[in-house]
């Protein structure tokens, strides 16, 4: 009898160890890209900076406040969105000068979700916001000045489970 109780207790313990935390379930992925925008010499962005796709430039220039003469892509990250936990994007890997933390708030129909987004600079939180993001549509955040230009973050839901 004692043996049976011991076996049952062990089985329960093992099952508990392997139980998946539902909050850790990946429900999609977020694309975070960092752009350098300037009306000055675009070479100031450095050798690592990449050309920006034409459709991306068009989308940026369509917003008056984000319209600059030149754009360069400084980096990007595609972290997983967890159902119930905060996740982080490091768009300038390996540098962690700029970080973005995010966490889902609620779903708003297929492909749409409200999230908490936080912008971190030099390891300090600068601002947070709670936008509704639509899959495939970028939200641009005009950030700090750098090398006679501005940094622009583009945040977009890449995938989202239905």
């Amino acid at each position: 009898m004692k043996f049976l109780v011991l076996i049952s207790a062990s089985a329960l313990l093992i099952a508990d160890l392997f139980a998946q935390d539902p909050g850790m379930e990946p429900i999609g992925s977020l694309g975070v890209e960092l752009f350098y925008a300037t009306n000055d010499d675009v070479k100031l962005a450095g050798d690592q900076a990449q050309e920006v796709a034409k459709d991306q430039v068009k989308a940026l220039k369509a917003i008056k406040e984000l319209s600059f003469s030149h754009y360069r892509r400084l980096g990007g990250d595609r972290p997983t969105i967890l159902r119930g936990y905060e996740s982080w994007a490091t768009p300038l890997k390996p540098s962690k000068e700029i970080l973005v933390s995010f966490q889902p708030i609620k779903r708003e129909g297929p492909g749409k979700m409200q999230m908490v987004l936080e912008y971190w600079q030099s390891k300090r939180k600068v601002f947070s916001t709670n936008p509704f993001l639509t899959k495939g549509k970028s939200l641009y955040l005009l950030g700090p000045e750098w090398r006679k230009g501005r940094l622009i973050l583009a945040v977009k839901i890449l995938n989202l489970k239905d």
């Binding site: 450095g46 390996p94 600079q121 030099s122 601002f127 916001t129 639509t134 549509k137 000045e145 090398r147």
Partner: peptide
């Protein structure tokens, strides 16, 4: 729908910072 958030007043990032380095 929101398309951009323009934030003014953020401390400028030093021009000396090289993002390619950790």
């Amino acid at each position: 729908n929101v398309s951009a958030i323009v934030v003014e007043g953020i401390t400028a990032i030093s021009d000396d910072i090289d993002f390619a380095r950790a």
